[in-house]
Computed example of a mutant assay.
Amino acid sequence: MTQLQRPKDALNDESRQLALLVNSVTDYAIYMLDKDGVIRTWNPGGQRIKGYSAAEVIGTNFSRFYLPEDAAAGVPQRNLRTAALEGRCIGEGWRVRQDGTRFLASVVIDPIWVDGELIGYAKVTRDITERQEAQERLQKVQHSLLQAQKMEAIGKLTLGLAHDFNNLLTIIVNCLDLISLRVKDSAASKLIETALRAAERGAFLSRQLLTFGRGQKLSPEPLDLSRTLRDSQELLQRSAGDQISVVFDLHDDLPLVLVDKAQLEAAVLNLVCNSRDAMPNGGTITVKTNVQVTQDPVSEAHQPLPHVCLTVEDDGEGIPAAHQARVFEPFFTTKPVGRGSGLGLSQVFGFTTQSGGFPMLSSISGEGTRIVLCFPAYEP
């Protein structure tokens, strides 16, 4: 009977109640410090979060959990002073586990007073790394969704303008052709020829706009990316110029992709020419193909999927971070006036997305740019 009553007796003893409560909590590190920050108690939550057993930490200073640079700057002692002066110290910061890994901690420090004398502190720490990572993932997805919606809106506007512009150009070209048949004067013929070339240039720009707006009619066919790029090696090297080396890292036995070959070749040529322009003093462009397990930034799929990827990477000037969100917009360019229409990357974007894929860009100013075009594998 005495043994059966012992658990009930523990609940009737206030000190035992507190000990049971603290030692039953594993999601929070709850421990006491003396007024100098030396650890006096330790609960299982502290061991689970930080990796130390009670024997390893009791009697040592709690500053051991802080990042070395924070400890050297006196952050632990400053937090204790804040708690003593303001009645509580609440904050978040990076801490270090026993194995050296870092975690984001939510910390509360309360002073303990007895008869008006400060005798120590009660400290509660919670690991909020997963929550922080979830928030960052959510913000990234929201940003990607907003960017996709913006590009879709621009695409619809561009599509309408491109169609109207194309219709006007068709009339202009037809009229010039008819005039050229009737006019025999050599000077007038040259003017007509110049106007026709300008109209053809306008028609080309219109096709690029239609590609960005997903209004360009594609002729997709199953293609081996590596084989297609091998056939274009000479053209790409010639387009890059003598000062630039184009390195090909093309993997064999890749799954086929269903894309328009002419649009694919135009997209790669655009990327290589952009890289060339970013390296006026020469450099290296790497063109490679492989399979990557990745996820469309705006996809609703929860798991990344394998994609057949084409990468064009350079070691040039890079793109400023402030401009990276706009590089695929039509007519946006970081090049000097007269050195680009701003439609090259928009063609790449439109072709890739219309083919069921998505582009990824990463760039660091002064170090280079990498653009990856990801396509779903073709399944007959």
Results as ranks from 00 to 15, higher is better:
233 Q>I: 12
205 L>E: 08
212 F>S: 04
137 R>P: 02
118 L>Y: 05
106 S>D: 09
163 H>V: 11
71 A>M: 05
109 I>F: 00
379 E>R: 11
164 D>Q: 14
370 R>A: 09
132 Q>F: 08
30 I>T: 08
251 H>I: 14
117 E>Y: 13
26 T>Y: 10
61 N>L: 00
109 I>T: 06
224 D>W: 01
208 Q>P: 02
110 D>G: 09
108 V>H: 11
187 A>H: 14
68 P>A: 03
239 S>T: 07
222 P>H: 09
74 G>K: 00
378 Y>D: 02
27 D>W: 02
69 E>T: 04
138 L>S: 13
192 I>D: 05
218 L>V: 04
90 I>L: 09
253 D>G: 14
368 G>L: 13
268 V>T: 04
138 L>T: 12
20 L>F: 03
169 L>C: 11
257 V>D: 00
248 F>P: 09
127 D>Y: 01
31 Y>K: 10
336 P>T: 03
103 F>V: 02
230 R>L: 09
63 S>V: 06
195 A>D: 13
195 A>N: 11
328 F>K: 05
43 N>K: 01
374 C>G: 03
90 I>P: 02
10 A>M: 15
212 F>C: 00
240 A>S: 07
282 G>P: 00
85 L>P: 04
251 H>V: 14
146 L>G: 11
302 H>V: 14
239 S>K: 03
347 Q>K: 03
252 D>W: 13
209 L>N: 04
197 R>S: 15
268 V>S: 02
122 A>F: 12
249 D>V: 14
267 A>Y: 02
138 L>A: 14
242 D>N: 12
200 E>W: 04
303 Q>C: 05
365 S>C: 13
286 T>P: 11
316 G>Q: 05
106 S>M: 04
3 Q>W: 10
303 Q>M: 10
336 P>W: 06
148 A>H: 09
51 G>S: 01
205 L>S: 11
125 T>N: 05
184 K>L: 06
265 E>M: 07
137 R>C: 07
179 I>P: 12
95 R>E: 10
299 S>T: 06
210 L>K: 05
33 L>M: 01
245 S>W: 13
120 G>A: 05
30 I>A: 09
129 T>A: 02
304 P>N: 04
158 T>M: 04
